[in-house]
Computed example of a mutant assay.
Amino acid sequence: MARGKAVEVYNVSKSFGTYQALDQVSFTIQENEFFTLLGPSGCGKTTLLRMIAGFESPSEGAILLDGQQIETLPPHRRRVNTVFQSYALFPHMTLAQNIAFGLENLGWDRRRRRDRVAEMLELVHMTPFAGRRPAQLSGGQRQRIALARALAPEPQVLLLDEPLSALDLKLRQAMRDELKSLQKKTGITFIFVTHDQEEALDMSDRICVLGQGRIQQIGTPSEIYEDPENRFVADFIGETNFLEAEVLELAGGMARIRTPFGLEITAPQKGLAGPGPATLSLRPEKIGMESQAEGHLLQGTVTGRNYMGGFTHYTVDVAGQSLRVSRRNALSHAEGHAPGQPVSLGFRADSVRVLAQ
């Protein structure tokens, strides 16, 4: 069964004086979708979130919620709630009172409020702490209560503005699982803002990569990572090797390319106008080393090594070109390749992406 449209953004632009924060942004978010706005600081993602919430107005364009144009509606008339980075809990209230506060303002009667508060506390596994105040909680517990308070009024859309950034690494990882679980249980559309690519890849149904106030690419996590449409996306999502090359011939969705190593390969392409200079993207984990080398083979010399636990990251010089290579540490205490050591590398042509300039 096809899902309906939860949020539609059409040709939205936003200017602050002479500064253009957003420029002709358009996308559609489906009901019950975990949709992430991802990009570096200053790319316009929080401004866009604030416009959906009603805290900012677009300079141009339209925003629709469930088919209704909302950019002129005040925040309290939109079925949208926001979880902020700071959580914004009332320090003088108990957790139960924090959750009930918005419901009371909406006119819910006492029994309905009590039942909903109990339901929300159970949903976020905080029932034993109902009588505590925010100062008595850990960061992760405050996060859960902020989520419960935002979910209590049954919003159509929940907006999350970098809600995990104040937590430590282990807690952030645990809360990612909590957020995904809550989204599936409630069936509410989540719009999540982050600059953390790992968070976006882990949690999202789809990702909208923003850069310089414009949409760079929208797709599933695997589409964004495996098939970046331009250099900005390839560089921002994960790590990659950029290689300057020459496109010799185009044929359908394929390009014949001369690489800087002197090899000619045929690789997938889209968006190229014709033969000429091009930039290639080759992810470090797509390059095999020694026994794992396959496809197009290269000879190089290790110039650097960084042990990272699960992986070791190597820098390898190949004919004057510096390549980053990632190798999983599958065996305990396996000897790595030392700087100065010659190594064989290999990559498959279908691992190369030809990027639009």
Rank of each mutant, 00 (worst) to 15 (best):
I218H: 10
N230I: 04
L282V: 01
K170G: 12
A150P: 00
L331W: 12
K185G: 13
A118F: 10
L297Y: 02
R133E: 01
A118L: 11
E223Q: 10
R214Y: 13
Y87N: 00
F242T: 03
E199W: 01
P58N: 12
E33Q: 09
A100V: 05
D235W: 04
I70L: 10
P221I: 09
N11Y: 15
G54C: 09
V247M: 04
Q143T: 00
V318L: 04
S326Y: 14
T315E: 07
E119T: 05
T47A: 12
L103S: 06
A166W: 08
A174F: 05
M254R: 15
D66I: 06
A152E: 00
H296V: 03
I99M: 09
D205P: 01
F242M: 07
K5W: 02
A135R: 11
L323P: 09
I265C: 13
V354I: 00
F90T: 03
E178C: 11
L147M: 09
M51R: 10
L323T: 02
G336H: 14
G253R: 10
D350M: 09
P342I: 08
I52Q: 06
F90R: 04
Y87M: 05
S332V: 08
G310L: 11
V302Q: 04
G252R: 03
Q357G: 10
D23F: 03
Q97C: 02
V233F: 06
R144D: 07
K14A: 04
M175D: 04
F27K: 13
L95G: 05
A150F: 02
I99G: 04
S41V: 03
Q197I: 11
E294P: 03
G346P: 07
S15E: 10
E229M: 07
A338T: 09
P91M: 12
F242A: 10
A255D: 07
E33A: 05
E246T: 10
P74M: 15
A148K: 07
R214H: 14
G4I: 12
S13W: 03
I287N: 01
L297K: 06
L355S: 00
G219I: 15
R110P: 12
S322Q: 15
F232A: 09
I215G: 14
